[in-house]
Design a protein around this nucleic acid. Structure first.
Lengths: 216, 216
DNA sequence: TATTACAATCAACAGACTGTTGGTTAACAC
DNA sequence: GTGTTAACCAACAGTCTGTTGATTGTAATA
């Protein structure tokens, strides 16, 4: 676990390769990338590539691991939120702190994340990101009662909810990251209190203030 | 558009290749598959493969198109649902007809769908399936008012909702497709009326009957 | 600053996969 | 039954792969 990569040449090489990977994924898709493409764009000798990585998949996996690890790191420093605090954020239209931190980091690594979760990216990355989000957001949302004794329906709700959160992140990237992290955190919180079925009760919900009223 | 594939040999060859593709994707991932792998497993000459498909990606895309087209076909025959009917289904615990049809078809083509949306599948397929689901389920759920004048928040809600629906489908496949299509349609309908924020009002919702009560 | 370690380069290698071709055999539709 | 054509087979050059050995250049440390 101890990174002993002090040599500037190594970090430069790795950075160049990771950047080239992100660009090329968005360009032609991971599938079509050759090691030649990578080293050519990164302006690195092909032999040097193999000194650091087994193959292009190894480069991909290592880069993904770094990203996942960083997200975990960020979220591990965040205190678990009480329901009262969540409510406070909601009614006062304050962004959730951990959501802000998450979106800030994802935004900073935008190019790479967008490439990975995009239609030409790595289908194996999305589940990993989902797992992190599930562990760090859902555990703050789902009550203990359901966490400990998970029924099939609860599991389906978890799958529903984590996928939904990732869908919002994807849409953020696709639409050009126009909103800043704070805005995104507010949007996420708002959506958490929406449900399509609300129309059944035919009452405008508290969501009016974010401009959506209720959804049929 | 007119399929003139009457020759039994052709349909046999194509079927063998599509099946081999599904198996190999789950086995080693699309990325790692070679045309040799495909023809070997399908027991087809390699030259024959190139008589039908440009490359392995062409095989993938054509197979995906067939699947998407079939889903569209199924859903086009379904009448649009009124809010009253939706309510009727919900309170009487009846499965939504279009959801049943969707899950039935996906289940019938389980192996292939599971391979495509899985962690070794095609990252480009999920968005396409999402789009179909969005068009056919969400348009029955979102009121006209929001459909015609889409605010950013509405779009985020759509992204949230469609991803969520796909997450449920994914979980169905991952967990071994234990529920039959009718059960899945009921689960989906139930989840539509849940929201994590319900705890704020601290009232057990109508969802009690499906064993979840309310979610914090 | 000089020395030592090692990262990066270059050229060349066999092996695998690709996409194509021309000639042959066998199954199909009518 | 016969013409059509799909499937088979072998062989082709071209590309990408992963590895090697020798050489050059850059970095950390004394």
């Amino acid at each position: 676990m101890i990174k002993k990569t002090a040599d500037r040449r190594v970090v430069r090489t790795k950075k160049m390769l990771r950047d080239a990977l992100a660009e090329l994924i968005e360009d032609k898709g991971f599938e079509a990338i050759t090691v030649c493409d990578l080293t050519e764009r990164a302006d690195i000798n092909r032999g040097t590539f193999y000194a650091h990585y087994k193959d292009k998949t190894d480069l991909l996996v290592q880069s993904e691991n770094d990203l996942i690890e960083a997200v975990l790191e960020i979220q591990s420093g965040l205190v678990e939120m009480s329901m009262a605090e969540l409510l406070d954020c909601y009614v006062n239209n304050k962004p959730l702190p951990f959501a802000v931190a998450l979106y800030r980091y994802l935004g900073d690594n935008g190019r790479f994340v967008r490439a990975l979760i995009g239609p030409k990216g790595d289908p194996g990355f999305t589940p990993r990101l989902k797992e992190v989000i599930a562990r760090n957001i859902l555990e703050n949302v789902l009550s203990e009662k359901y966490r400990e004794n998970m029924t099939p329906l609860t599991k389906y709700y978890m799958a529903y909810y984590t996928s939904a959160q990732l869908g919002v992140i994807e849409h953020w990237f696709e639409s050009g990251m126009n909103e800043d992290p704070e805005e995104m955190a507010r949007i996420v919180l708002s959506i958490m209190f929406m449900r399509p079925g609300d129309a059944i009760e035919m009452r405008p919900t508290i969501l009016d203030r974010v401009g959506m009223q209720y959804v049929i």
